[in-house]
Amino acid sequence: MIGTQDPPAQPVVRLDSVSRLYGGSKNRVTALDNVSISLERGTFTAVMGPSGSGKSTFLHCAAGLDRPTSGSVHLDGVDIGSLREKALTKFRRERIGFVFQAFNLLPALNVVDNVTLPLRLAGARPKKAVVDQVLEQVGLSGKRRSRPGELSGGQQQRVALARALVTNPAVIFGDEPTGALDTRTAAEVLALLRQSVDVVGQTIVMVTHDPVAAAYADRVVFLADGRIIGALERPTVDQITEQMQKLGTWGDPFAIQQTGHEVRR
């Protein structure tokens, strides 16, 4: 029957010709340079590059923490550049989750209260079933009443992940989420991120310098001098390390396999 085909899925994150400049005319720095990329729902994307390549600026613009100098950012179908500050804050709180290297937990609050803080800030009453589900998902069902000071670093990062998941966000952005963890604990947190993509269809965008962490992603996008210079699909740790070494020594960064800007499941 004509007209019964589903429309093509809209990317959950889309950057169109995004540039971000800092400083004045005499000391201008181009942190992002005409970046365009689309990320589909239910995918895990790692963003890598040398120091100063624009990784953090990319994350901040994509997540609405910083406004581009030019270009547009659409997140979950919304042009976030068109939102006033109050509306943007509300949108971030309701539709975006964040997991940082610093756990950013409130020491006086227990696990449940830290996890439900975004909901309460939004004026919503946390549903016990939802809270129970995310705590079970991150393996903290037995730590509900513990305070951050009573938890290991890995457990604190699990609380931060549960806090990001509890609002059922369109995207979770991670900025070096395992940077403060030992190797074994980092692997546990990365496995939870991977599981949230595979099991519940979460979308994750993670900035990292660690090839082992990046190998958990479906796709690794490489930045240099504020530009996307290539990507690898489902790469191994060795492949990622090789490309980062090329970038670090400024060999031929364009040797990275060019695979286009669409992330595929």
Rank of each mutant, 00 (worst) to 15 (best):
D79E: 10
D79I: 04
D79M: 07
D79F: 09
D79A: 10
D79C: 08
D79H: 07
I80V: 11
I80Y: 11
I80W: 11
S82I: 03
L83E: 03
L83N: 05
R84K: 15
R84L: 12
R84D: 15
K86N: 13
K86R: 15
K86Y: 04
A87C: 01
L88M: 10
L88A: 10
L88C: 08
L88I: 06
T89W: 01
T89A: 15
T89G: 08
T89L: 13
T89N: 14
T89V: 13
K90L: 06
K90S: 13
K90C: 00
F91R: 01
F91H: 01
R92M: 05
R92Y: 08
R93K: 08
R93D: 00
R93E: 01
I96F: 06
G97P: 01
G97D: 01
G97L: 00
F98P: 02
F98D: 00
F98N: 01
F98E: 00
F98C: 02
V99M: 03
V99Y: 01
F100A: 01
A102S: 14
N104K: 10
L105T: 11
L105I: 11
L106T: 14
L106Q: 13
L106I: 15
P107S: 09
P107N: 12
P107L: 12
A108Y: 10
A108P: 00
A108H: 14
L109V: 11
L109I: 09
L109W: 08
L109F: 15
L109C: 04
N110G: 10
V111L: 03
V111N: 04
V112P: 01
D113T: 05
D113F: 07
D113C: 09
D113L: 13
D113R: 14
N114K: 07
N114I: 05
N114C: 11
N114S: 10
V115A: 07
V115W: 03
V115M: 12
T116H: 02
L117I: 12
L117R: 09
L119C: 03
R120N: 04
L121S: 05
L121E: 12
L121K: 06
L121A: 07
L121R: 03
L121H: 04
A122N: 00
A122R: 00
A122M: 00
G123T: 04
G123S: 06
A124C: 05
A124L: 14
R125D: 13
R125L: 06
R125A: 14
R125F: 01
P126A: 11
P126N: 09
P126Q: 07
P126I: 09
P126M: 07
K127C: 05
K127W: 02
K127Y: 03
K127L: 11
K127G: 03
K128Y: 04
K128C: 02
A129P: 04
V130L: 13
V130K: 15
V130E: 15
V130M: 09
V130F: 00
V131S: 09
V131N: 06
V131F: 05
V131A: 12
D132I: 12
D132S: 14
D132C: 08
Q133R: 15
V134P: 08
V134Y: 10
